[in-house]
Simulated scan of single mutants.
Amino acid sequence: MPDLTLGMTNEETAYAKINLALHVRERRPDGYHRIETIFAFLDQGDVISVEPADQLTLEISGPFAKGLSSTDNLVLQAARRLAELSGVAQGARLHLDKRLPVASGIGGGSADAAATLRLLNRFWGLDHSLAALADIAKPLGADVPACVYSRTCRGTGIGQDLAIIAENELQGYAALLINPLVAVSTGDIFAAWDGIDRGPLGEGTVMAVARSGRNDLQKPAVALVPILTDMLQMLDGSEPIMAQMSGSGATCFALYDTLAAAAEAERHCRQATDNIWTMKGEFR
């Protein structure tokens, strides 16, 4: 019988992130933007694994491994930062199974870095809290602290001021992610934002805030990547609870009452076109 404990100890999922709403409030002098967002996470994503080693190394495989550097990567940056701040002299042989598209608005690189921190915290026996890991993660990227928690939360500031939301608010709901296999530059999309503050997030339950909210980056993203209109129309045709773009794109998502409904929507999308990436899952 396989050692399931070893597998759980030496692997960590980098959960796909969805911005259920993303309100851009202002462009800051330092180049960042002040935002208000609802982060949510699927139970699917990339997978990071680790084995003992004298040095810190990274290997990458998977459907979206092509073109990724195994020496200049957020995974290694996260590992080196954790080792330095924790006084760790051990190495680690890391492996990234890259299942999420690159530059797709669902936190791929950020989630990988966050999963690396959680994995090595356990592997090296450091016993840092998630709050401590989120603090360590801040210089690695705006979304990395939220990805450390990988729990539904409200993000403000540049997205790093987090308020965790009750875990059961999205329990039972599912989502379908769809991407036209077009990489989108986050910087380009934010630069194309028109600078108009359209107001804050609403109040209430997560689902109520999401349904009354918006993604202020969707319009500039559609202008730069017109095929996103087709993706959103395809999702709208599946009669979801809501459909929208996540983050800066190009991944779009739709919410459903059940995983079975998400699977049925995925079948319809796949019948309409083969030139897409899809992933379905339930919320954590």
Score class of each variant (00 low, 15 high):
D143R: 01
H268S: 14
A223C: 10
G155E: 01
G247P: 04
L117K: 06
L130T: 01
S70N: 08
R154S: 11
A243E: 11
R93C: 10
N19T: 01
H128D: 01
A111D: 06
I136K: 01
Y173F: 14
A131R: 15
I178K: 03
A92I: 07
G141R: 10
L117F: 06
D46C: 11
C252M: 07
Y149A: 03
G172E: 13
N10Y: 01
P180H: 07
L235C: 09
D236M: 10
G108Q: 13
L217V: 04
C147T: 02
N168I: 00
F64N: 00
G62S: 05
Q77M: 12
N275K: 15
L255R: 06
L85N: 14
F41K: 05
L176D: 09
L85C: 10
V184W: 08
I48V: 12
A175G: 10
G108A: 14
N19S: 12
T258Y: 07
D43S: 10
P2K: 06
M234W: 09
I196F: 02
T273V: 07
N168V: 05
E169H: 14
T229D: 14
R81W: 01
R99K: 03
M245T: 07
A89Q: 15
L20C: 03
G199E: 05
D112V: 00
A272S: 14
E12H: 06
I164V: 12
S150V: 00
Q77I: 04
V102L: 11
G45F: 02
T278R: 15
K17W: 05
H128F: 03
G125C: 13
S129K: 01
E282G: 14
E36C: 02
W124A: 10
I60E: 03
L217K: 10
T205A: 13
V184G: 05
R118T: 00
L68T: 02
E11I: 04
N19A: 02
R198G: 07
G237H: 14
W193D: 10
P139I: 07
E167K: 14
S129L: 02
V102I: 08
G62V: 03
P139N: 08
A208W: 00
F283W: 09
C153V: 02
A16P: 09
L56F: 13
V182H: 14
E59S: 14
F64C: 11
G105L: 08
V144T: 03
E264L: 09
E36N: 10
G204N: 12
T156Q: 15
D143W: 03
T156N: 11
G195E: 07
I48Y: 12
T273H: 07
P101F: 01
I178Y: 10
Q55W: 08
P226I: 06
R27M: 09
W277G: 11
N215R: 03
I227N: 14
A191R: 15
V209G: 05
L74Q: 04
A131M: 01
A21K: 08
Y256S: 04
